[in-house]
Design a protein around this nucleic acid. Structure first.
Lengths: 265, 265
DNA sequence: AGAAGGACCAGTGGTCCGTA
DNA sequence: AGAAGGACCAGTGGTCCGTA
């Protein structure tokens, strides 16, 4: 129900830098390159990967018996973006803190790209849901293992569960309070902080959002069309609970001095 | 949000027959004994079981370390309802087809009791949910393993997962079309059919309900306040899907002769 | 035979920690 | 050092099949 066009030119981890688009996107306060690039091609682009085997096998969930025996040998018909030849294990480039609209340079990925991955996952979920409905099978409402498996089969090897779960709360802040999210990115970029520090810093403003909206972080996630497909991260849930409790205690002792369960409103 | 009082006098599997209540409930077309009995006691009654160890330990989810080493030995301070002494494994009495309001005689359980178990499970779920909310933990929306474990710890040893899953669609028919459900029970009782036959027969009218309401069996379950806590059984889902498909084919070929996807409306 | 339920199993949510 | 992600693990949904 939102735009589908974004996938076409997703900047990928090991990508040749998307210099052309970058020129046109220059600066741009709000949407950034992921919103600007594009005109509709909807197609998972194949990655130039040293260690090949990225099949695009349809929308199957069944053919689990095409053996995955790695064929560890040759098949490097593609030079690895100049990174050096061999068959060492490849990973995505690490993230760096970028401001909105900024494309990461060098062997790095930016935060617009990170957030774009969440939208891609949601689109994979929608495809899985459609297949399930057609077949009359159980229909997932969240991005589950099944969806990650599907994404991998569709060629999106750069998506994996630990990564996506790791940054969910950052994406949540981006969805729920984009102004604050953008300001945080600019501040952390300016200070030269690393991604881990930025990630940690996303919790606090997100808890503040929860406070404003009645503390029910599950309800807050579920009420948002793009966020509702993600599980609430354990740590975020704990932080909201702890903060609510101490806020309640503080309020009841300062106002009434009365019972702890006496929530203020 | 519905009445909580029903638990008090639940007829249990190995129970001494609840003769007193039975007298007062005699016949009664609609609600049956589970709706009539009672005046509010809300308390899990302890079972008279040959092999004891039914603790009522609070609402804990944590003390998983009180060893369950069975103490297979003595502790039969209770005679086993006259059924014979030893320490053979005890089970619930089997269900028989009873009509609405009818209490099973002999070592049998009736269908009102069966349906009552579903309501008890829902109440256990609500308790688990309340605890989870208090603690700021993940909050289940369905009757999960966790809820079955909780029920067992609360002393409801007569509730178990395979049994509850086995009859879910029967309970669904009872919730969604009580008239039809009641009629089916009367018919199958009259014909002297066993529980298995009745259980099988519940599918068809339930699929008919689904047909009337647009085939989305998940939505139908979720829209019902008591049913929404139960997972849609696999077989029911399959039946609905198969029936919808063939209904669609039949309709499209008889009306237009056109495309298969052309659903009638 | 008909039925209750212990116990198993494939695949889940969650995330640690060996890797680069 | 900071970070990406393979792989593990406890507990899940689902139901079979040894039991009575």
């Amino acid at each position: 129900d939102t735009t589908h066009a974004l996938d076409a030119l997703s900047q990928e981890g090991l990508s040749e830098e998307p210099v052309q688009q970058e020129k046109e996107a220059a600066g741009s306060g709000g949407g950034g390159v992921w919103e600007m690039v594009v005109g509709g091609v909807r197609k998972q682009r194949r990655r130039k990967n040293c260690k090949g085997r990225s099949r695009m096998t349809s929308m199957d969930q069944d053919d689990d018996d095409d053996d995955d025996d790695e064929t560890e040998g040759g098949d490097d018909d593609d030079n690895c973006g100049g990174a050096g030849g061999g068959n060492e294990r490849q990973r995505e480039h690490p993230f760096i803190v970028t401001e909105p609209g900024e494309v990461a340079r060098g062997k790095k990925n930016g935060l617009d790209y990170l957030f774009h991955l969440y939208e891609q996952c949601r689109e994979f979920l929608i495809q899985v849901q459609n297949i399930a409905k057609e077949r009359g099978e159980k229909c997932p409402t969240k991005v589950t293992n099944q969806v990650f498996r599907y994404a991998k089969k569709a060629g999106a090897n750069y998506i994996n569960k630990p990564k996506m779960r790791h940054y969910v709360h950052c994406y949540a802040l981006h969805c729920l309070d984009e102004e604050t999210s953008n300001a945080l990115r600019r501040a952390f970029k300016e200070r030269g902080e690393n991604v881990g520090a930025w990630r940690q810093a996303c919790y606090k403003p997100l808890v503040a959002v929860a406070a404003r909206q009645g503390w029910d972080i599950d309800a807050i996630f579920n009420a948002h069309p793009r966020l509702c497909v993600w599980y609430v991260p354990t740590k975020l849930r704990q932080l909201c609970h702890a903060e609510r409790s101490s806020a309640a205690v503080a309020a009841s002792s300062s106002i009434t001095g009365g019972g702890v369960d006496h929530l203020p409103f």
